[in-house]
Simulated scan of single mutants.
Amino acid sequence: MKRIMKITLSALLITALMISLLTFSAGAALPPALVGDVNYDDSVNILDVTLIQRYLIDSAVFYDNQKPVADFDRDGEISVIDATWIQRKEVGMTIPEGYGGILNQDIFVTSFYADHESGKAAAGIPVTFTARANCGEEGCTYAFYIDGKMVQERSQDNTLTYTFPESGDYYVEVKAFNKDGFCNPDPYGIFHVVDSYPYDELGLLSVNWIDYAYRPDPILEVRATGGTAPYTYSYTILDLDCGESYSKEYYEKLGWQMLYDKDEKPYLYRDFSENSSLTIPVFELGFNYTRRLVVQAKDADGNLTEAKTVIIEDQLIMG
């Protein structure tokens, strides 16, 4: 079940976080899943037990890639027995052979994004598309297509840099292959190219999610243009649930400040930083719960871009 993202413009000027710039080696794939690690924190523990128990009483919704990971005894079903075996493992009891272990997941593209947003790429300007996929232990190879025509043959390079010759709408697609040649196509969709774009004017050129639908703490990457480089970036997360089980100390350990507005409503804040990628912390979310993430950039002369608000509607309950 994929999360839904909507992006709107806002004049809001509250600010928050930047942390280390994400790097990604060409051709690398997400590792196989650790069976029982339902919250994907690279360990199997009581937190996973709690998530399974909540799933079983319909107080949590799992994404499709979480369901096979929650099936600890590999019987094809998620049940209290899976939670029980994880608890037994936690206290050092011997578990039957075949329980837990590593799961080589099916091929799926986890991210496909461009360094220019659709509508902000001008004809004659190189645009770089980046794909990330999970193809198991052997990694992936990638082939890229525009309007159904292959423009970059299958290789370990997970990026395509392409210069569109003229303005118009182009259909962009990537195919990720595993070592056996099986592939999973994933469309970027329609990419709109304009005749010209005011790149010298300060603004946000792209705001992209990385692994947004496949991990509880996705990464957001932002790119500014115009003005005077270097740029700094700020973020604020609004609409925290006052009933959050996570404490102020929990968010502070992740580098956030928890502050309160004039109505005593909490929000998360970190100041401007030169880094341009942001890891979203794990939240405890209710069904159909919505948060606002406000993004803004500042150039070296202190000029600010217009703020952009990313609205995240999420049905995943983590905690």
Rank of each mutant, 00 (worst) to 15 (best):
R3M: 09
M18C: 15
S10C: 03
P96K: 00
E264I: 12
S276G: 04
D41R: 00
V35A: 04
G101F: 11
K248P: 15
V172L: 01
I14C: 02
N134Y: 04
D169V: 13
P187D: 03
T290Y: 03
A70P: 04
I125L: 03
F164D: 07
D271G: 09
F24S: 02
S247N: 05
Q105Y: 15
A29T: 10
V127M: 06
L30A: 07
Y99Q: 02
Y231A: 03
P126T: 07
T232C: 09
T94H: 13
D186P: 00
T23I: 15
G119M: 10
P126Q: 01
I78W: 12
A60S: 05
D71P: 02
D115M: 09
D41Q: 07
T236P: 09
I190A: 03
T15D: 10
D106M: 01
P126I: 14
K175Y: 13
D314Q: 01
L13G: 14
L21M: 14
T163E: 10
K262G: 07
V222S: 01
S20K: 05
A114N: 00
V294T: 03
V295H: 11
P230T: 13
A224Q: 02
Y113E: 09
S10D: 04
A121K: 00
Y170F: 11
A121F: 14
Y260N: 02
L202Y: 07
G124D: 03
F182H: 10
E284V: 10
F24P: 11
L13Y: 14
D73Y: 08
A16F: 13
L293W: 13
P230L: 06
F287K: 00
F144I: 13
K265T: 05
D75V: 11
F62K: 00
A114I: 11
W85E: 04
P185S: 02
S20V: 15
N208L: 10
Q105D: 13
K298N: 04
M150Y: 08
L304E: 08
Q257W: 07
G27M: 08
P32H: 06
Q296M: 14
Y231D: 06
K175N: 07
A121T: 14
P185W: 15
R292H: 12
V151C: 14
A11R: 13
P165A: 11
Y162L: 11
E173T: 13
L293R: 02
A83E: 10
N65H: 09
Y142V: 15
I7P: 05
F108A: 01
A131T: 08
D169T: 11
L56P: 03
L293S: 06
L47V: 10
P266Q: 02
T94P: 06
L21H: 12
V294W: 01
L51E: 10
G92W: 04
V80D: 09
N178A: 05
V172K: 03
L204Q: 07
C183A: 07
P281F: 01
V174I: 11
A300E: 07
N288L: 05
Y260V: 00
C140K: 01
D301N: 14
I190D: 14
R3I: 08
P68I: 15
A60R: 00
G136S: 05
P187G: 01
F164C: 04
D314R: 00
